[in-house]
């Protein structure tokens, strides 16, 4: 046990975190109609950080990361991503979306395009990369997620775990500086979760800045350098994984952890 913990610390040390702040969220608020989903969120993410966001369902964690690439619009406060402020300027939004990759719970692959076409679509149309280069990049990342042989199949022909790995490769093909994961494993069968988590871990080892909404606490212990617990639209507690799991401070966190770990 101790050995493992040491290993993890060593792993974490390998993944250097720089001082450069890539995401700044300042007193951000959001409402759905009358419902206050996100309340006074303040969060700074440095380059290379791996953040895991957890919390009970309906606590606003997905909404938080969807605000970062403006899939949801916040109504008050500032979000600054990679030096660009998210405001009503559509050019900024396009710029940020090109820099921020996102992986969805339900994969959202485009069923009418092959795996390769799924991966080259955005580089070609958003980054204006020549098709050949885009395909090379795509194959590179498909190899990395270990499914280069599926490149000419259609998403429907792949298993859930494979689809999710394609979705990760698709996001990586834009060479994003930040990756957002919105419960990437919760729609998967148990035996497929590992292959996706492995992919994410190797990504983390390469120093990718990641924000990950997930309930995979093993993953959080292994790769995260910060765990954020949200409840009722607020950040209730954030800490490094070790103290977070071993010595939670808030009662809500304790309750939550006992519910998901206590069996």
């Amino acid at each position: 046990m101790n050995e493992v913990a040491q290993d993890m610390t060593a792993d974490r040390a390998k993944m250097a975190v720089s001082d450069e702040e890539v995401i700044q969220i300042r007193s951000m608020n959001k409402w759905y109609g009358d419902f206050h989903v996100l309340r006074d969120i303040n969060l700074t993410v440095n380059r290379g950080e791996r953040i895991v966001v957890c919390g009970p369902s309906g606590s606003g964690k997905s909404t938080l990361i969807r605000c970062i690439n403006r899939l949801e619009e916040h109504q008050a406060g500032d979000i600054i991503v990679d030096g660009t402020e998210l405001n009503s300027d559509l050019k900024n939004i396009d710029k940020i979306r090109a820099e921020v990759g996102m992986v969805f719970q339900h994969f959202n692959l485009f069923p009418h395009l092959t795996i390769l076409e799924n991966c080259t679509l955005a580089p070609i149309w958003v980054r204006k990369t020549p098709k050949k280069d885009a395909e090379e990049t795509a194959m590179h990342f498909l190899t990395k997620v270990k499914i280069p042989e599926q490149a000419n199949k259609y998403p429907g022909q792949l298993s859930g775990g494979q689809q999710q790995r394609v979705a990760i490769a698709r996001a990586l093909c834009m060479r994003p500086r930040i990756m957002l994961f919105d419960e990437p494993t919760s729609a998967l069968d148990p035996e497929m979760i590992k292959e996706v988590l492995d992919t994410m871990i190797s990504l983390a080892e390469e120093g990718m800045t990641m924000i990950c909404v997930t309930h995979e606490m093993g993953f959080a212990r292994q790769v995260a350098n910060r765990v954020i617990f949200m409840d009722q639209g607020q950040i209730v507690e954030q800490n490094e994984p070790e103290p977070f799991f071993n010595d939670p401070q808030s009662d809500r966190t304790k309750l939550f952890l006992s519910q998901i770990l206590g069996h």
């Binding site: 001082d19 450069e20 600054i80 405001n87 009503s88 559509l90």
Partner: peptide, 26 residues
């Protein structure tokens, strides 16, 4: 430490904001 300056939000109204800014676009 890279300090992120929030881009000066104002700067007045430009013509291209009509189709580049979600406040005016629709």
């Amino acid at each position: 430490m890279a300090v992120i300056d929030p881009p000066s939000g104002g700067g007045g109204f430009r013509v291209d904001m009509l189709w580049n800014d979600s406040r005016y676009r629709s």
